[in-house]
Amino acid sequence: MKWRKEDLEKYVQAKEYIDTILLPIIPFQLADDAESEKHAFQQEVMGIFGSEIEQELSGRVMLIPSYYYLKEGNKEVEVQRLNDWIAEAKDQPFQHIILLTFDATWKKYEKELDGNLLWLPGLHGADIRTKETQGIIRDQVKQLTEIIRSYWQ
């Protein structure tokens, strides 16, 4: 399910079946030109990952709007805000909260987060329109759905 009207209508009917939140967390900054190109690209790739995983597991997973934060911002504050998002979801009750990120700095704060952090190695200098990149993404999506399914067991 995605955060859109027609899916939400279905979700309200079938709440007991949908117990997993997928939350992409995405850094944003404009100060460093080279870096911002990289971050914009990662944002695009994250969009693809999110929607592909959602498509595979749409009957049990809700892909909610991405969480954006300043790349050089204070992580302690972000952890606090993220935990507020997670608490909102857990109230519903969603049982599994999965955070997707390309940003390795989150690894340090993993223990303070109330959800499961999945860090993905970034794709650098790739072109998302080529067959090879699509193949890589498809393969990674397959492995990610395996991991998410393992949380359900």
Partner: peptide, 8 residues
Amino acid sequence: VCKHLGCV
């Protein structure tokens, strides 16, 4: 597409 809630 599963006829329950649309997983694969």
